[in-house]
């Protein structure tokens, strides 16, 4: 699998001179599977430039996997070029709520007054799938979705392709629900079923510990919690993701240096996501 980061900012797009190195677009990853088919993880504002980059490439099918429908993970969907191509076959996967299907929920955003065009008028007529409880196939890959700890229905994804695994949990508060994350049994920690032993984990690292302490229950991780979770789940490589919109490039540099201290030996196994980052899984 080849992964490209098109957006790694959390909560709100934050372009500007202070975020130019890590980027201001919200969550979006491009995955090219072993047969070169395309899977897109989340539809934050980063999906717009991805759509631009895909112009002229005739893909038989695109699968978009949405972890949840908070606006920073959905706001780019209507600006994804292939969505407006009547010949494109687009499948959108994501969590239903207890009372509404994924399609109904997305239709609440892709319709007036929040969006000028109604979902049913979009030329590609995307096909919506509530994430199933069991694994499913996307091209050569096997995908698994587990509900994880974040306000509202939210899943993390695990993608397996040719014995290589990637986990994507951009919004996650694993510390909520356990007394001490560092000593908790993995079976009682949200997200371990997705992240366990993967080659590469993209995971929430939105807050410093001081920021987290006044935002408990908001659904995100401190640097300490993120590193502890990655260690607990025995991941081989951890990419810090979902940067707070208030964090400048310089702050993110400092957070990464601290995270590497926490990680200990083999500090190169942890890095900070930035737009344009390519990861070979």
């Amino acid at each position: 699998m080849r992964v490209t980061v098109w957006g790694c900012r959390g909560s709100l797009a934050s372009p500007g001179p202070e975020t130019v190195r890590y980027g201001g677009n919200t969550s979006c990853l491009e995955i090219r599977l072993s047969d070169d088919s395309l899977v897109v993880l989340d539809a934050g504002t980063g999906i717009r430039p991805l759509g631009v980059a895909l112009a002229g490439e005739h893909l038989p099918r695109i699968d978009i996997l949405l972890t949840h429908l908070h606006i920073d993970h959905l706001e780019g969907l209507g600006f994804f070029g292939p969505l407006w191509d009547p010949n494109a076959e687009i499948h959108v996967w994501g969590p239903a709520s207890p009372t509404r299907s994924l399609e109904e929920r997305i239709g609440m955003y892709l319709s007036p007054p929040l969006f000028p065009i109604h979902l049913r008028e979009i030329p590609s007529h995307p096909i919506f799938h509530d994430v199933p409880p069991d694994e499913w196939r996307v091209g050569p890959a096997t995908v698994k979705a587990d509900f994880i700890n974040h306000p509202g229905p939210t899943v993390g994804f695990r993608v397996l392709d040719e014995d290589r695994t990637l986990a994507y949990i951009p919004d996650h508060e694993p510390a909520l629900g356990v007394d001490d994350l560092a000593t908790a049994s993995p079976e009682w920690v949200s997200g371990t079923g997705v992240a366990w032993g993967v080659d590469v984990l993209f995971h929430d690292a939105q807050y410093t510990q001081d920021e987290y302490d006044v935002r408990v229950g908001w659904g995100h991780s401190s640097t300490e919690h993120a590193v502890t979770f990655a260690r607990l789940a025995k991941v081989r490589r951890y990419v810090m993701f979902h940067h707070d919109p208030q964090h400048s490039d310089e702050q993110l540099d400092r957070i990464l240096a601290y995270a590497r201290e926490l990680w200990g030996e083999d500090g190169d196994s942890i890095e900070m996501a930035h737009e344009g980052l390519r990861v070979e899984v």
């Binding site: 509900f147 079976e187 371990t192």
Partner: peptide, 9 residues
């Protein structure tokens, strides 16, 4: 590593 049993959220 062998995956642990995980509980429903």
């Amino acid at each position: 590593p062998e995956s642990p049993r995980t509980r429903s959220l």
